[in-house]
Simulated assay, not measured.
Amino acid sequence: MLILEVLFYSFATVVVIQVLYYTLIFGNFAFLKHSKTTSETPPVSVIICAKNEAENIKNFLPSVLNQDYHNFEVVLINDSSKDDTLEVFEDFKSKYDNIKIVNVKNIEAFWGNKKYALSLGIKAATNNHLLFTDADCKPLSKHWIKEMSSSFTKTNTIVLGYGGYNKIKHSFLNKLIRFETLLTATQYFSYAKIGLPYMGVGRNLAYHRDEFFNVNGFIKHMKVRSGDDDLFINEVATSKNTVIQYKKNSFTVSVAKTNFKDWFKQKRRHVSTAKYYKTKHQLLLGLFYITQVLFWTLGITLLYTTYLWPFALGLVILRFLCQYLSLGFSAKKLNEIDTIFLLPILEITLIIMQFSIFITNKISKPNYWK
């Protein structure tokens, strides 16, 4: 009985921590109302780095080039592609006069390093306001550049946007991918709102070029293959220079993986950068994940043993209520509301997947970006 009593009070503590996360932290984004943006429309350089992305460039680049914005260029970076990416770039350049091509050839010191390629593209950009997306991304509207750039001010030099994934009917994997994306966005938007910005996603991210040169670019983590988006933001973002943009016209959508193996490989690369985050961010993110795991393990154990089950059940309901409200409002903002219907199943699956990635990355490090 003593063991069960310890488990019960431990479970109560875990639930309190989870409730605080979903209300006091994630609620900052979930229940946030749109604020007014500026009317500034600065010249923008859209930067796209591509490696073996010929088909995606053909399909998605027109949606960038046809943006309704008065002054922008598109910097296309060919990162030593083996397919026809460079030829596709050159074909588009012959039709549009606002394209600049940066052709990157591998050198021994930076073999296959996306950050090296991006650095060359940033240096080649004409404008100081930089907007980043990926070759397999499509802006959801013709006002993407306008919405993202309107968040810039003299003090707001970093803009965190939302990059979602395409929806595939009757696909559990697709819902899992989009649920993970929703949860991640809810976290980085919320932390930014409370003055602790810790990451952004390269699918939709903007910052002033001075932020890049003030810290010598990616030099501090150049040897880490991933992290051109989250590690850079973790280094330079502060409560004073970072703003979020979540209007639907500012969204981009990417092609989601269609098999678990490819997605697992992709997430291994993304997760591998977390250990380089600032300590305070690691602690906050780690505590959330640990209490997620403990909520399920302790909750199931207590309900199975029926020890003080009415109280245990009440705690379970309280946590789920806060979770559904927080993620539900966030999902509505980010157009991912259909993922909420399978929330418990998706959460358990994601927890198991994240633990598997942690173990796999301990055994062998991912050393690729494509």
Rank of each mutant, 00 (worst) to 15 (best):
F31G: 05
N56I: 03
S250M: 07
G121A: 00
D230W: 09
F341P: 03
L160R: 04
K332P: 09
A331D: 05
T305V: 14
Q292K: 07
N52G: 01
Q323H: 06
N166A: 13
V75F: 04
I300Y: 11
W144F: 07
E73I: 00
F11C: 10
I48A: 03
D136H: 01
N361R: 12
F288C: 01
F89D: 06
Q354K: 11
I48M: 01
H129N: 15
Y368K: 06
S364Y: 06
Y116P: 10
L120N: 03
L342F: 09
I300M: 10
I348Q: 10
L4F: 06
L303Y: 07
L160E: 03
R268K: 09
F11T: 03
W309R: 04
E180I: 08
K223I: 12
A54R: 07
D229E: 14
K138E: 12
I363M: 14
H221S: 14
C322K: 04
I244Y: 02
L76E: 05
V293P: 05
T186F: 07
K142G: 08
S254Y: 07
V201Y: 05
I300F: 10
Q18V: 06
W309A: 08
P62L: 00
I177N: 01
L346H: 00
I194Q: 02
T184V: 11
H221D: 12
A206K: 01
V159E: 07
S226H: 12
K169D: 15
Y96E: 09
T23G: 08
T252M: 06
T38C: 15
F320Y: 14
K115W: 14
L231S: 03
T297I: 15
V88D: 04
Y246N: 11
A54H: 12
N128A: 10
I233T: 07
I244A: 01
E147P: 13
A125W: 12
P366N: 01
S171V: 09
F179W: 08
Q245A: 09
Y165L: 13
Y277A: 00
K370V: 15
F132R: 00
M222Q: 11
K247L: 15
L140Y: 08
